[in-house]
């Protein structure tokens, strides 16, 4: 089921499909490892309802709801305490090793 990151529930694990938004933000978010295919867990929401806290590749990142709405995700599974290894990227992005 396709959705966006802001709509995820606390504890839910989703897979990133596409990162949208302003260029600098989008680039930085992807550089922090939120590339398509990566699993993300919504760890929590700040007491005032915004921003939200994400677990990405073992690191906790926080972004605002307005920006999280621009991140398209698909649900993986319901809330879980621990998270399995991250998924691999799509084959067309798979790189060969150094020459």
């Amino acid at each position: 089921m396709s959705s966006n990151l802001a709509a995820a529930e606390r504890g839910q694990v989703v897979t990133v499909e596409r990162v949208g938004g302003e260029r600098a933000f989008r680039r930085r978010l992807m550089e922090l490892g939120l590339v398509p295919g990566t699993r993300v867990e919504l760890v929590g929401v700040a007491p005032l309802g915004d921003p939200i806290e994400l677990l990405v590749r073992g690191a906790c990142l926080s972004i605002r709801r307005a920006e999280a709405e621009r991140v398209a995700v698909v649900a993986v599974e319901a809330a879980r305490e621990s998270q399995p290894n991250s998924t691999r990227l799509e084959p067309e992005l798979e790189a060969r090793s150094a020459m």
Binding site: R27, P36, S86
Partner: peptide, 13 residues
């Protein structure tokens, strides 16, 4: 941006 960053993470993964 997606091409470049995606390729780098694909390499690392």
């Amino acid at each position: 941006d997606l091409e470049v960053i995606g390729a780098r993470y694909a390499f690392l993964d």
